[in-house]
Computed example of a mutant assay.
Amino acid sequence: MDNSDLDDLFAAVRQQPVAVSDGLMARVLDDALAHQPATVAMVKPKRSKGFWMGLFAAIGGAGGLAGLSTAAIAGVWFGFAQPAALTTVTDSYWGTTETVSETVDILPGFYDYLGEG
């Protein structure tokens, strides 16, 4: 059997009408309607919360904001106050014994504000 024989068979089948009973068509259509997806009511999309609320949620809410602000305040305090214990730790870590001969006092210390007069 070659391709031309197969084409002849398909042409012969196409010429014969296909008889389907009305009962079979009704059952097939009823089954198809039963499997159709149900309609879903449209839901109004939620409004965007805005930039600040999105940032607040990305940080982790109130707990994340509290931790971030505490870390920021501690960093600023360590940067300007330079506790002696912290400089001892950093000197031992870096292994330097050099002392800085010139320092610039950008922010005065707490005791500078306590002076009388």
Rank of each mutant, 00 (worst) to 15 (best):
44 K>W: 03
30 D>Y: 01
68 L>Q: 06
87 T>Y: 01
80 F>M: 09
35 H>T: 11
80 F>A: 08
75 G>F: 04
63 G>D: 14
30 D>C: 00
80 F>N: 05
62 A>S: 05
27 R>P: 00
62 A>C: 00
72 A>C: 10
20 V>G: 00
59 I>E: 03
36 Q>W: 03
81 A>V: 14
23 G>L: 09
57 A>T: 07
86 L>F: 09
79 G>R: 08
67 G>S: 12
61 G>A: 04
23 G>H: 04
40 V>H: 13
78 F>V: 11
39 T>V: 08
38 A>S: 11
54 G>P: 00
55 L>H: 03
64 G>I: 05
41 A>D: 08
21 S>V: 05
34 A>T: 03
70 T>D: 14
42 M>T: 11
87 T>W: 01
33 L>M: 11
88 T>Y: 01
41 A>I: 03
30 D>A: 14
48 S>D: 14
92 S>A: 07
75 G>T: 04
85 A>C: 01
36 Q>V: 10
57 A>D: 13
50 G>M: 02
90 T>I: 13
36 Q>S: 08
36 Q>P: 01
58 A>Q: 01
27 R>T: 07
52 W>P: 00
38 A>Q: 12
17 P>H: 04
91 D>G: 02
16 Q>N: 10
47 R>N: 07
46 K>I: 08
72 A>H: 11
84 A>Y: 00
88 T>D: 10
34 A>W: 01
31 D>L: 06
49 K>P: 05
31 D>H: 09
47 R>S: 13
39 T>K: 10
29 L>M: 15
83 P>M: 11
35 H>N: 14
32 A>Q: 12
89 V>M: 09
83 P>N: 05
32 A>E: 12
28 V>S: 06
76 V>L: 15
78 F>P: 00
78 F>L: 15
33 L>T: 06
27 R>A: 15
63 G>E: 11
90 T>P: 00
60 G>L: 03
53 M>N: 13
25 M>F: 08
49 K>R: 15
30 D>I: 01
84 A>I: 03
55 L>A: 13
70 T>H: 11
33 L>N: 10
59 I>V: 15
53 M>E: 14
44 K>E: 13
87 T>R: 12
93 Y>D: 00
24 L>E: 13
53 M>D: 13
37 P>C: 02
39 T>P: 06
67 G>C: 07
39 T>Y: 07
91 D>I: 01
81 A>H: 11
68 L>G: 05
84 A>K: 10
83 P>G: 09
23 G>M: 02
81 A>C: 02
73 I>G: 01
42 M>A: 15
82 Q>S: 07
52 W>Q: 06
84 A>H: 04
74 A>E: 12
37 P>Y: 00
46 K>F: 09
70 T>G: 13
90 T>H: 01
25 M>E: 12
44 K>R: 12
51 F>W: 07
16 Q>W: 02
67 G>M: 08
22 D>N: 14
42 M>F: 14
20 V>N: 09
62 A>W: 09
75 G>M: 10
37 P>Q: 02
22 D>I: 05
88 T>L: 02
35 H>R: 15
42 M>K: 12
34 A>Y: 00
91 D>K: 09
35 H>Y: 04
68 L>P: 00
41 A>G: 06
86 L>Y: 06
65 L>M: 15
44 K>M: 09
62 A>Q: 04
